[in-house]
Design a protein around this nucleic acid. Structure first.
Lengths: 145, 145, 145, 145
DNA sequence: TTTT
DNA sequence: TTTT
């Protein structure tokens, strides 16, 4: 019951977000995010990149579709979810994704040339003390995965 | 513009939450939370406790008022906010608080004897993909501090 | 280059840690951790449990081996790492793990009946301002996975 | 005993780090960091900036002194510490600081014109599995605050 | 497979 | 002022 499942990433998008509009009307976005760690080993500088599968839903997905592109530096907050699917050979496979509930574009404005200074987004976009959100489409059950 | 301001605490409440109902109808809750770090110095075990001022608003405050008590172990997530006030001598003073947007009771059920198994709460209590919240009273501007 | 890859979990161990001592002398520990989220959907309370694969190395692994058991409530901090391996059919498979660099036992002492009050551990166990650690065995390259 | 006290910030330095070398040989660095939140209220876009006091010690302080300057975008991870001091009138005052144990320069390389691509630092700078650090000067006790 |  |  007691549970905390939180992921915090800062990295660059490996590709443009892939946008899907589901039957129920919900928008889903997927992209990969690279986080690179630099450390020194035996005097040599080593870079190690980790790739993450990020998923965003609904309102957050729409903002992501509009403002995120390949190469952008972004802060992502979310939770881990491992889901299974059947591969082409009928074998059960697993993927772990980060289901984001918040993101934030980093870097200079000039990097984010989409003409707005929109740079923060969340499932809960208004000020916390001031929220009035109602996005509920219950279509998740219908998802093909 | 780009900004992340996040605090994550796990600790015990130093006192029962202090509940206030504001004119506009909003509920605010304040309590102190102790996080204790144990480390070894010169072979001796040393405990160092840090006290945090936690604030919760509206729906979250109401859940906190109902379920949190002195001594309880709790996970709190929020953001830092430093606000100023005038002390009795008219001098400007500053306090830093954690404005929580989420909490989670930890520990065993028997510790949480309030008769329910409610143990998670957030400004956004439903499932993220399923949210339908509307708590907006805009009273914050009227607050006496 | 710029990278942050951080995971924060609070959950219960699904099994006792599995301890391995590698040829080079390093200790590795693996366990699963359940984080359970409770939310309300259509008026019904729903529990959703996510299982995480946690890995700990060296000094941290040794402390984990000593103090963690199935069922314990624990705070884990670490980073995501997805690694590939070949399954019995020679197909490339992927697993995502949390490589912990810190953990903290939660819950009451009586739950942690191992006779000590050791409850915090990290790759960096002393006080940060006071550290003097040297665990370096460089055996990781020799690991069989 | 059980305690987690973690702060994660992404923001811009409000001034160059202020570097002090203590008698015992330790380096300390202080700077302010601004995190800005943008939200919409009554249809107007509102920006709210929070200022944080960041402190770094020893090795981390030295790297910060070398690479951080006013205006830089940085990720900072640390813990909260509230300390008291006596003001000029002999009154006890409190400040809350973030004692960093990790930082990471964000933004494009060209923004970080110091000639290196050093962009990550921690109290524990090597790869976790590969660490061999020994910075211990025990001078903290001698600090004037 | 955990926990409440 | 909490907790172990």
């Amino acid at each position: 019951m007691s549970g905390v499942n939180k992921v915090i990433l800062v990295g660059h998008l490996g590709k443009d977000p892939e946008v899907r509009h589901l039957e129920g009307g919900a928008t889903v976005v997927n992209f990969t995010l690279a986080t690179t760690e630099t450390y020194t080993r035996d005097g040599r500088k080593v870079e190690q990149t980790e790739w993450h599968n990020v998923v965003m839903w609904r309102g957050l997905a729409e903002i992501a579709a509009k403002y995120l592109q390949k190469g952008k530096l972004v802060y992502v907050e979310g939770k881990l979810r491992t889901r299974s699917y059947d591969d082409r050979d009928g074998n059960k496979r697993y993927v772990t994704e980060i289901v984001a509930d918040n993101f934030n574009m980093l870097g200079r404005k000039s990097d984010n040339e989409n003409g707005t200074n929109q740079s923060t987004a969340s499932q809960n976009p208004s000020k916390p003390e001031d929220q009035m959100i109602g996005m509920n489409d219950n279509t998740e059950d219908d998802l093909p995965f």
